[in-house]
Computed example of a mutant assay.
Amino acid sequence: MITSYNFYFCHIEIYEDYVKAIMKEGITVLPEHNDVLLLITEKHFKNKPFVYITHRINSYAVNPTVYLETAKIPNVIGFAVVSADHRQKIQTKLEKAFFNKEFKQFDTLELALKWKDQMIKKYSDQKIV
């Protein structure tokens, strides 16, 4: 891990090629929360591709229009939701409709990280061509 941030609505960890966010219990994720993500991406991922991973260990709500804004961040190449909860899997299917980039749900963080590696490699391979 490079660094981490603790905000009123989430805890974010920054790694070389991904962000891992854990939202706080009971919050509602709103489009304005993307302002924080934008600042972090400018600071840590300037012109560098990365994957956003949300580890859903707490119960909270998501306004799905947040993904319309997240998708505008040019170097976000994928979004992963980590949760084995059946309700979260259903919610993720709805959220995916609002995000026009790669968006996947995983039962474990390990599976999400393997997918992240594939996404980074795929992006790198496309840039070479």
Results as ranks from 00 to 15, higher is better:
Lys48Leu: 10
Cys10Phe: 05
Leu39Asn: 11
Lys114Trp: 08
Val76Glu: 01
Lys121Gly: 02
His33Val: 07
Gln91Val: 11
Lys122Ile: 03
Glu102Thr: 14
Asn34Phe: 02
Phe98Val: 02
Glu95Gly: 07
Lys93Tyr: 09
Lys43His: 09
Ile27Met: 14
Ser83Asp: 06
Glu42Arg: 06
Asp85Met: 09
Tyr8Ser: 15
Gln118Tyr: 14
Gln88Trp: 14
Thr108Val: 11
Ser83Val: 06
Ala97Cys: 07
Lys121Tyr: 12
Gly26Phe: 11
Asp35Ile: 03
Val36Ala: 01
His86Gln: 13
Asn100Glu: 12
Ile27Leu: 09
Asp17Phe: 02
Ala21Leu: 13
Ile77Asn: 00
His44Asn: 07
Ala21Ser: 15
Lys127Ser: 08
Pro64Gln: 02
Ala80Gly: 09
Tyr123Lys: 05
Lys48Trp: 10
Gln105Cys: 14
Gly78Met: 06
Ala84Phe: 08
His33Glu: 14
Trp115His: 05
Tyr18Lys: 07
Met23Arg: 08
Val76Ser: 01
Glu95Thr: 06
Pro31Gln: 11
Ala112Arg: 05
Val129Cys: 10
Ile120Pro: 00
Tyr123Thr: 05
Asn63Asp: 15
Val62Gln: 07
Ile14Arg: 04
Met23Thr: 06
Glu102Ile: 15
Ile14Thr: 04
Phe98Asn: 02
Asp17His: 08
Asp17Ile: 01
Glu110Gly: 07
Ile2Val: 14
Tyr15Ser: 07
Lys116Tyr: 02
Gln91Ser: 15
His55Asp: 15
Asn34Gln: 05
Pro64Asp: 02
Ile27Cys: 15
Glu16Ala: 09
Glu69Phe: 05
Lys127Cys: 06
Glu42His: 06
Phe103Met: 04
Tyr123Arg: 03
Phe79Gly: 04
Phe7Val: 03
Tyr18Gly: 01
Tyr18Ala: 02
Ser59Phe: 10
Pro64Lys: 07
Leu37Gln: 04
Asn75Thr: 03
Thr70Gly: 04
Val82Ser: 11
Thr28Arg: 13
Val81Cys: 12
Asp17Pro: 03
Pro31Glu: 12
Lys48Asn: 10
Gln126Phe: 04
Lys48Gln: 15
Thr65Trp: 04
Val82Met: 10
Asp85Ala: 12
Asp117Thr: 05
Ile2Leu: 14
Gln105Ser: 15
Ile22Gly: 01
Phe45Trp: 04
Tyr60Thr: 05
Arg87Leu: 12
Ala61Phe: 11
Thr3Val: 07
Leu109Gly: 04
Ser59Trp: 10
Arg56Ile: 08
His86Thr: 13
Lys89Trp: 07
Asp17Met: 00
Met23Phe: 14
Lys72Tyr: 00
Gly26Asp: 14
Met23Lys: 08
Tyr18Trp: 11
Tyr60Glu: 09
Phe98Asp: 02
Ala61Pro: 06
Gln105Trp: 13
Val129Asn: 15
Tyr67Ile: 03
Tyr5Pro: 12
Asp107Cys: 01
Val76Tyr: 00
Lys96Phe: 07
Val51Thr: 03
Glu95Gln: 12
Tyr5Asn: 11
Ile77Tyr: 00
Lys114Ser: 13
Ile77Gln: 00
Asn6Cys: 08
Ile12Phe: 01
Asp117Glu: 14
Phe50Trp: 05
Met23Asn: 08
Lys96Tyr: 06
Phe106Val: 09
Lys104Asp: 01
Ala112Met: 05
